[in-house]
Write a protein that binds this DNA or RNA. Structure first.
Length: 308
DNA sequence: AAGACGAAAGTGGTTGA
DNA sequence: TCAACAACTTTCGTCTT
């Protein structure tokens, strides 16, 4: 397992708020707190085996299962042919025939479980690849893998692409563990498009009878803020504005991203670290127009006026 | 010249008959 | 299954700093 070493000591809880939802970000070698957004950026050490920093090489070069697992028999499987003849072309005795019949039956059964197995092996390596390029912590992978096994169990995967389902599992795991990644970000690393991922996601939720709460805009604040180089006070401000707006019942039916962007924009102005609407819209991946609309609404509901 | 603003038309997804 | 609808995007002209 990975240990979080900070200033020589193992860190289990956020020094700021005490939350244990610490996120390790190997890309920037940072630890951040998923709860309050505090970012610690020193000496993130990795004491676990088998991790390659994926900074320098494409992340799909990551160590997966041995390749012999991917093609479990290396393409050399034996097939019992359908003719009831022996190798000399003679008919088989009834006893022999029955024996061969049973063997065929077993072989086809084994094939089915092979297919499932192979699917799972591929899916698991894909989960690994995806979450590794998304710099996701390990527990996400486990949750995603578990979800995928359930998908197979309930046969939700019928007529659907494995890649779409895998991406959806990863997305769902992120939502569940409140380590927010947007659909856009997952799409970037996956070979399937947003539409497909979203569809698979809904199938899974329906099939497993799950329901995940809408993602909370505040969860995204710290990550986007750090991408924009905004200070902690801006983050805190943005989060508290979001919370207040939420209490006043603003964000009904609005996309979380738009709200996050708006809150960041407002907070950046209020804290004198102004970013342009464009800067923010680029990072958050919504349009300037949406930023504008949302932040107007935010202003209205909160009764804030910016002029100084 | 860059940023902010808002109108108008277009897009993709949801919902309800 | 289809049409109405809300949220969001694209595009573009205008105003402000």
């Amino acid at each position: 397992m990975l240990k979080t070493i900070y200033q020589g000591k193992e860190l289990k809880q956020c020094p700021e708020c005490g939350s244990d939802r610490l996120v390790k970000d190997f890309y920037r070698a940072e630890i951040s707190c998923a709860h309050c957004g505090l970012v610690l950026d020193e000496e993130l050490l990795d004491s676990g085996p088998d991790w390659r920093s994926s900074d320098t090489e494409p992340s799909n070069a990551r160590a997966g299962p041995p390749s012999t697992l991917m093609i479990h028999d290396k393409g050399l499987s034996t097939v019992i042919d359908w003719k009831n003849k022996d190798i000399y072309g003679k008919d088989l005795s009834p006893h022999r025939r029955a024996q061969i019949y049973r063997m065929r039956k077993w072989q086809s059964r084994i094939r089915i479980s092979d297919a499932l197995e192979r699917n799972l092996v591929f899916a698991l390596s894909e989960i690994e690849r995806l979450s590794s390029s998304l710099k996701l912590p390990k527990n996400i992978r486990e949750v995603a893998a578990l979800l995928y096994r359930q998908v197979l169990e309930k046969r939700i995967n019928k007529n659907k692409t494995t890649e779409g389902l895998v991406a959806a599992c990863v997305y769902a795991a992120c939502r569940q563990l409140k380590i927010p990644r947007t659909l856009d970000e997952i799409e970037e690393q996956s070979r399937v498009d947003k539409k497909e991922i979203g569809r698979s996601y809904r199938f899974i939720m329906m099939g497993l009878g799950m329901k995940l709460p809408l993602s909370n805009p505040a969860e995204y604040v710290s990550r986007f803020a750090s991408q924009l180089g905004l200070s902690g006070s801006v983050q805190t401000r943005a989060i508290s504005m979001l919370e207040e707006a939420l209490q006043r019942g603003l964000p009904s039916g609005r996309s979380p991203m738009g709200l996050t962007a708006a809150a960041l924009y407002l907070a950046s102005i209020l804290e004198n670290e102004k970013r342009t609407q464009r800067d923010i819209s680029e990072v958050v991946k919504v349009t300037e127009v949406t930023v504008r609309n949302r932040y107007k609404e935010l202003q209205d509901t909160l009764g804030i006026d910016i002029k100084d």
